[in-house]
Design a protein around this nucleic acid. Structure first.
Lengths: 118, 118
DNA sequence: TGATCATATTCATAATTTCGAATATACTAA
DNA sequence: TTAGTATATTCGAAATTATGAATATGATCA
């Protein structure tokens, strides 16, 4: 695989490597929203939202469209939604694994208490 | 969507937000490899590879299995491969878009030269 | 024109990540 | 036990990222 492709992928991942930015992308699932609408939903500072939006633009994750006073954002490509959906399934699978492990552990040592790691 | 899920996703993305780590995951597509085999393929310092592997472990992206002297790594869940595949398709789609834009631009202004941005 | 609204950028600081070098651990073989 | 091999961890410096505060831009409306 080409280095350019790895570079590209890591750019995308960097763009999504923040919970607020993931929230933004998820709010945009249903269609475009203005910066103001996003800020309202996110409940964060305007400047902060604007910075996260700048990151998402720079990493090619969203596109913006200016209409008069406002700027409307949308997801550049549906592929990114698919990615998030896959991870949601992954998350629940992981969760199940963890829960089952804990159940097993509980069965094997019913009187023991959980021990903190590290 | 829950905050925990967003947190989880951003962890995964952080884990993959580096070209070397993407390379590792891709080498592991076909099955498990020892740390040494990975280092050979990656052509990077042993310590550096080991650090990236530690990140991938911490972010729950790979699992390791010790056999005598060596440590074998594999991808924890196939979902992550799917994610990378989706991004590959996205990458080429983006590439086509860019190429087409450049073609259009060339048609419209055949004598102009490309201007550097920023 | 000036006031106001929506959004972006800049700046300073703190926190995190990266990488190489050095060192440590853990297993194996002699 | 000692030496050697495979891998991990720690440390320090540089680079990158996150965040809030302040400021700037640009569009609209009076």
């Amino acid at each position: 695989m080409s280095d350019a492709l790895r570079q590209f992928k890591s750019q995308i991942f960097q763009g999504l490597a923040n919970p607020t930015r993931i929230a933004i992308v998820e709010f945009l699932r249903e269609g475009e929203l203005s910066a103001g609408q996003l800020i309202e939903k996110l409940e964060i500072e305007q400047a902060n939202a604007s910075q996260h939006l700048a990151v998402l633009r720079a990493k090619q994750i969203v596109v913006s469209r200016k209409v008069g006073n406002q700027v409307y954002y949308s997801i550049r490509d549906h592929a990114l939604i698919e990615v998030l959906d896959i991870l949601r399934r992954y998350f629940y699978a992981q969760l199940n694994t963890t829960v089952n492990m804990l159940k097993e552990a509980a069965k094997e040592a019913p009187k023991s208490r959980l021990v903190t790691r590290r």
